[in-house]
């Protein structure tokens, strides 16, 4: 490890420790905002981890988020919390493997449509089960989890997500993924098992999304399919990741943070027209920043040295 890496590692650690103390100083509203920020940061980063290298656009975020939330609704009051989280993660992973094996052969728009349908499919299965088997639709989540606990759990999850992304990028697996992203046929000829690599990555990231749903569930108190499987989450995550730039690990966070703050600002300042303004903002983003914040930053970085060189040449 070089000294710069050690320094950045130390700074990261210090920042995480500082963030861990945030609940002690901020009030309930800012804690809620911080929870939103972490929630979307984790979701968008997990989304970008899969979609960045593979270039699949997945709208299944809410399917996994909802499964996590529902697992807590069903088991939350009966089992210890850590066990509930483990089961939620396991269910999410199993579901992701099944979905991944059956759909990652699809490409382009077919995959987008399938993942959008997946959320609705899972939701209808839950509705069917609750209507015909348990005969209750809304479930109550009364678990002993405070807002501070939710915040700390999300912070921990965020650290794990970034850690995982960092490790993947430096592993053989990450190298294989980059080749797949460039050209799948070439990857196959290099002897990479493309299907296994894609399914593995899909499963890892879907498990993170499931865990976010599980951790957030105690905030809802009351869960029914329309609340747990809210399609808006899927779209928001895609927009955030695209704004940030999905081809870098830290890109989606750069979209998630400003957009979450913007949504919050708009709903506070323009309560009756916030949705309208948001739509306009999205349009502006797509036109002004087609390759995201990361793309813009990289362009600036590439532009500056050239500009100075040119000036040097003139002089």
């Amino acid at each position: 490890m070089s000294s710069t890496q050690i320094t950045t590692g130390a700074i990261c650690l210090a920042a995480v420790v500082a963030l861990a103390f945030a609940p002690m100083i901020v009030d309930a509203y800012h804690l809620a905002l911080a929870i939103s920020l972490l929630q979307f940061t984790v979701l968008a980063t997990a989304w970008g981890m899969f979609s960045g290298p593979t270039r699949y656009v997945s709208l299944a975020t809410t399917a996994f988020f909802g499964v996590g939330a529902y697992t807590v609704a069903v088991l939350g009051e009966q089992l210890p919390w850590s066990l509930v989280l483990l089961i939620a993660a396991a269910i999410g992973a199993v579901m992701a493997v099944i979905v991944g094996l059956s759909t990652l052969r699809l490409s382009g728009v077919h995959f987008v449509i399938f993942t959008f349908g997946l959320a609705e499919l899972v939701r209808q299965i839950v509705v069917w089960y609750e209507v015909n088997m348990t005969r209750v639709l809304g479930r109550y989540v009364f678990v002993d989890i405070t807002q501070n606990d939710i915040y700390w759990q999300l912070l921990t999850l965020a650290v794990i997500v970034f850690g995982t992304g960092w490790l993947i990028a430096r592993s053989r697996f990450g190298f294989a993924l980059r080749i797949i992203g460039e050209d799948e046929t070439v990857a196959r000829h290099c002897g990479i098992n493309v299907t296994i690599a894609k399914v593995a990555l899909f499963t890892i990231t879907a498990t993170f999304m499931t865990l976010v749903g599980a951790i957030m569930a105690p905030r809802f108190t009351y869960i029914e399919p329309s609340i747990a499987f809210n399609a808006t989450i899927s779209f928001e995550v895609v927009i955030m990741a695209l704004l940030g730039g999905a081809h870098r690990l830290w890109g989606p966070a750069l979209g998630a943070i400003p957009l979450t703050l913007l949504f919050d600002f708009l709903s506070a300042r323009f309560p009756s027209t916030s949705t309208l303004i948001m739509g306009v903002v999205f349009l502006l983003i797509v036109y002004a920043l087609p390759s995201g914040v990361v793309g813009l930053w990289e362009k600036l970085k590439a532009w500056r040295p050239t500009a100075s060189k040119m000036r040097g040449a003139q002089a």
Binding site: Q5, A15, L19, H30, F162, L249, A253, L254, I257
Partner: peptide, 23 residues
Amino acid sequence: MVSAVKRLAAGLLAVVGAASVGW
């Protein structure tokens, strides 16, 4: 790794910045 620092710093700034607005 630099990326993670930036993200966390940005998050921290956001929380702190938002907190100061509230007083």
